Measured scan of single mutants.
Amino acid sequence: MQRVNMIMAESPGLITICLLGYLLSAECTVFLDHENANKILNRPKRYNSGKLEEFVQGNLERECMEEKCSFEEAREVFENTERTTEFWKQYVDGDQCESNPCLNGGSCKDDINSYECWCPFGFEGKNCELDVTCNIKNGRCEQFCKNSADNKVVCSCTEGYRLAENQKSCEPAVPFPCGRVSVSQTSKLTRAETVFPDVDYVNSTEAETILDNITQSTQSFNDFTRVVGGEDAKPGQFPWQVVLNGKVDAFCGGSIVNEKWIVTAAHCVETGVKITVVAGEHNIEETEHTEQKRNVIRIIPHHNYNAAINKYNHDIALLELDEPLVLNSYVTPICIADKEYTNIFLKFGSGYVSGWGRVFHKGRSALVLQYLRVPLVDRATCLRSTKFTIYNNMFCAGFHEGGRDSCQGDSGGPHVTEVEGTSFLTGIISWGEECAMKGKYGIYTKVSRYVNWIKEKTKLT
């Protein structure tokens, strides 16, 4: 034993070699072989497995989906700052455009905790909710729209109204504003409101030439003092309507412009014939205590009207009353817009006519005020429907199939267009061939041609 100890002390290297040989010859039971080890760690190889990531292109799944990435790591994937920024906006807080917040056709661009709407022409605001041009839906104005110097929408209202708090709607500024039905039992019968379409306001006024200088022999019209197929109006439903009495009662109609003036057809009036105007009328054979009678003290036909040349060209006249009318729910003026808007309103496509005229061709006159909704007829169809001249200051309205029309005794009465609950004068009943005849239409004086003249002559002093 002493000898062994001496050998170990003198030859430590020998001992180490012996131990190493023993270990190498022993069977290893701690580690699995290569094949079995792979069965336990069965993990798919990654895209760049075996390579240094710093030297390969980034992978979106590896960089940002398996674990949260930084902007720089995302930049490695896209290799483009702009594309990385677009991805980053949604990656950080989701897609803010998912709810489609942009209105009126706006395009949404996502941002971090926010979004941006790219608005089409005519709109602005956070969600493109603000109209900035009158060309689109009248700028959301209830009545009139004008573009300011910086191309912003400025709404306005006709006389007797003021802008509401929203700067879009119009509200009454006087007790009985024009064009409004205020009798409670008839307010439910107000005709369907007309909503502004998209309009090209630059070209809204037709490029028409008034044929002022045409000389033409007097034409022989049949029954051209021209509501057939209409309905009984309720008291106060058309408070701007008046009836004219002269040699015979209810020979023509008219509309209240203001307390002192009536507008009617020029062919209705004769110099030297006494005319009485009755406002607030409903049943011409009954006294309903809503009527107001006034005498006409002055007749002003349009300066281009000449019955000797043509009885229905420039067929418009103004009547001055001896005493002002007292405005109330049964006696209310009709609204008159400017030339541009009167023309736009007419193009809405349908209007209402009213009167006490004959209820059928050569038949009896109506006792109760009649009204009828009539569609506008395109000019080409209008011209083809008659052998008589249709001037540019006239328009056609009615039904091709016949059966409904204005008729004798309705002449001078109103053709009105309702705009968001307020009625505007767009025409004056003038003439036609018979009444409600198939293929024939009622012919009306186009008020847009005469609004400046009306307003100039009827100013209240």
Rank of each mutant, 00 (worst) to 15 (best):
E66L: 04
G230V: 15
I309P: 04
F399G: 09
I17W: 12
G160Q: 04
V77A: 06
E73N: 00
A265R: 02
A250Q: 11
Y201R: 13
S148M: 08
V359C: 07
C117K: 02
Q167A: 08
E86R: 09
P375S: 15
S114A: 13
Y161R: 05
Q143C: 00
H282Q: 09
Y161T: 01
G125A: 03
I390G: 08
L372R: 11
E66G: 03
E116I: 06
M6H: 09
F360L: 15
Y441R: 03
C178A: 01
G363A: 07
R140E: 11
Q241D: 04
I40E: 02
E27C: 09
I262A: 03
Y115I: 04
N306K: 10
M437Q: 11
Q57L: 03
Y305G: 02
V269K: 02
S114T: 14
N5W: 08
R43E: 02
A233W: 07
G427F: 00
N135S: 14
F176L: 06
K152V: 12
I299D: 03
K260I: 04
A173K: 10
G21Q: 09
E323D: 09
G413Q: 07
I210D: 12
Q370Y: 04
K109N: 11
G398E: 06
G246Y: 06
G402I: 14
K274D: 15
L325P: 00
D410K: 15
R46Y: 02
E98N: 13
G442F: 05
K362L: 06
P414W: 04
S182G: 09
C117T: 02
N80W: 01
T417P: 00
P324Y: 04
F399D: 08
E286Y: 09
T458Y: 01
M437N: 08
A149P: 11
D111E: 06
C97M: 03
I334M: 01
H34G: 08
H289I: 10
S182W: 09
G355P: 05
Q167R: 09
E259A: 10
F31N: 11
L189F: 14
E35M: 12
L244V: 08
E288Y: 05
T218N: 15
K146D: 13
W88A: 03
G439Y: 06
G230K: 11
E171N: 08
D111M: 12
C141L: 00
E73F: 00
G21P: 07
T218G: 09
R140H: 10
S430P: 04
L19A: 10
G363N: 07
C178T: 01
V419I: 13
D223F: 10
H314W: 07
W431T: 08
V419Q: 05
I454Q: 01
A317Y: 00
V4D: 12
E288W: 05
E76V: 00
S25Y: 13
K347Q: 14
V202E: 13
A149K: 13
P177S: 05
P301F: 11
G363H: 12
A173Q: 09
G412P: 11
I334N: 00
T417I: 05
D150R: 09
E159H: 07
R364V: 11
L244E: 01
C69S: 00
S184I: 15
K311W: 04
G439N: 10
W431L: 09
G253Q: 11
S187P: 14
G363Q: 10
I284W: 09
S365C: 04
N203R: 08
I210R: 10
R62V: 03
C108Q: 02
H34F: 12
V4P: 09
W88F: 09
N48M: 01
V419S: 05
G246T: 08
Q219I: 14
V269S: 04
L376N: 04
F221Q: 09
T445Y: 05
N258R: 03
V269P: 03
K51P: 00
F238W: 08
F71N: 03
V199I: 13
D110K: 12
N306Y: 05
E76K: 02
I309M: 10
I210Q: 13
K459G: 09
S99L: 12
